[in-house]
Amino acid sequence: MAQSTTDGINDFIQQLHNEFSLKDMGDLRYFLGIEVTRSSTRSLHLCQRKYIRDLLDRSSLANAKSVHTLMVSSSTLSKDEGDRLDDPTEYRSLDGALQYVVLTRPDIAYAVNRACQFMHAPTTVHLVALKRILQYLHGTINHGLIFRSSDRLSLVGYADANWGLDFDDRRPTTGYYPPTVWCDNFSAVAVAANPVADGSLVVGEVLAYDQVADILTKPLSVSTFARFCSLLQVLPLVKLGEAGLEYC
């Protein structure tokens, strides 16, 4: 008889306990700066409020004015902007700490990665951009990722689809539906021209309005940025209650 998931977990814990001294700490609440809230519907909300507050205190930004976006949509940072910092230690330390925040806040990933490009020789302008990220976090400190047990993340690329087409001889002659690859890159569409022509692949266009990945690759307007954050489920904790999901 197959074991239930709970029995399997308990057996695994017992095996570990046979080798190491373990203590049952109960449900996960806090781990390495990440706060975990569990709802009655098995949703998890991961948040780093305390960690972010500590960063704001370190940067003297605990009472700073909040901003709605991480970067101005027309912003372009370069290595020659501003005066070099005499001591880049603070910049590098904050940038490294913000990389850890990305774990629960993918909405800041692009801005943090841009800042990382200047860690070797940061300037005053780069430091201002870095602190703007902290100002944004100040206004969204209760935000975090919401995960549901039914969530699935599928990353599909042309290469993966093309790999699958190598098995043409195994495809059924009837009832076959060619795989669809969604793309907003004209070059990738051109590469897929032959498989599309022979009907073994379908390429669909992703409109800019629906390209959520843009939040990870470029500055966006306030409205687009907010919409993509919602689609990524980077939401405040109270959203659990609004959705009818009780939490403790």
Rank of each mutant, 00 (worst) to 15 (best):
L70F: 02
D54H: 14
R49W: 06
A62F: 02
D11L: 08
H17L: 00
L16Q: 11
E35W: 02
N10C: 04
S60M: 08
R38G: 11
N10K: 13
R29L: 08
K50Q: 15
T41M: 05
T41G: 03
L16W: 08
L61G: 04
G26C: 15
T5K: 10
K50H: 15
Y51I: 13
I34W: 03
L32W: 09
T5M: 11
H45Y: 01
N10S: 09
I9W: 06
K50R: 15
Y51P: 03
N63V: 12
C47F: 01
T41Q: 13
R53I: 13
A2V: 01
S4C: 06
F31S: 04
F31L: 15
C47K: 00
S4P: 02
Q15E: 14
L32G: 09
I34D: 03
S59P: 00
L32H: 08
G8F: 04
N10F: 01
Q15H: 12
L44Y: 09
S66R: 14
S66E: 12
G8Q: 06
I52H: 05
V67A: 01
L22D: 04
L22N: 06
L61P: 00
I13V: 15
Q3L: 10
F20P: 02
R38Q: 13
L46S: 03
Y30S: 13
Q15D: 13
D27L: 07
H45P: 05
L22T: 15
D11H: 00
L22M: 13
I34Q: 05
E35R: 12
F31V: 12
S39N: 01
Y51M: 09
G33L: 07
S66F: 06
M25D: 09
R38N: 05
G8A: 08
N63K: 14
K65N: 15
N10Y: 03
S66Y: 04
K23S: 14
C47R: 02
T37C: 11
A62Q: 13
A62P: 05
G26A: 10
Q14C: 07
A62C: 07
Q15A: 12
R38L: 11
C47N: 14
R53D: 14
S39K: 01
L16S: 09
L56K: 07
Q3P: 00
S40I: 02
L55Q: 03
D27C: 12
L28S: 08
L28T: 10
K65W: 02
S43V: 00
L44R: 06
L44S: 05
N10E: 10
